[in-house]
Amino acid sequence: MIDENGIRLDGRRWDELRPIRIEVGVIKNADGSAYIEFGKNKIIAAVYGPREAHPKHIALPDRAIVRCRYHMAPFSTEERKPPQPTRREIEISLVLRRAMESAIFLEEYPRSIIDVYVEVLQSDGGSRCASITAVSAALADSGISMRDLIVGCAVGKIDGQIVLDLSDYEDKEGEGDMPVAYMPNLDKIVLLQFDGIFTEEEFKKAIDLAILGNKRVYEILKKALIEKYFGTVEEK
């Protein structure tokens, strides 16, 4: 999957990301929303809330609760995905929710609920990482107080080498995949999953590379948010 010049199937080098485009405020009815294209991924995230919790008994007296639904459209994959949530989607909803809970000042919104919806219109490798980036843009757009933005980007192992941001094909055929979400200013990892064989050294290298990639995603995310609220950004 990597040729003798170190070029991957889609023309990238080991430490290059796929093209990323983020647009903030795409769903007018929602309190906050964002659209992300991350390689072939096309994902919308939207936030409703904080609003009154319903049913009432799920509310907590000292903080807000977060509800997250990650869903893939039936037409988002090669083969049609039945519309009902799969175990994979339920698990991703859970890890996305935990990542958000690390960033949001939940105690500022007692007795309320924050609903976060993620819809994958087209999927590619690393959809949960693209999703968390879109989610944090949507949360920022909604004005909910957060400790930091969250960005996500995966690393993986193909042909025995640790590389940044796996494509769909590299994820399926490669030896390992490791999605990482990160709060860049607090320097904290808020989502980490991996499968595939990694030695301790490879694991450390992968984490370092993921943090590097995430810092680049962060620049793109920041720019998209500034563009939404202050118009075009001047290049430095």
Binding site: S102, K188, I189, V190, F194, I207
Partner: peptide, 15 residues
Amino acid sequence: FLCAGQKGGSTGISK
């Protein structure tokens, strides 16, 4: 060798 992993909990972790 590590072959799978999963983070839980609602707080970030340092490298």
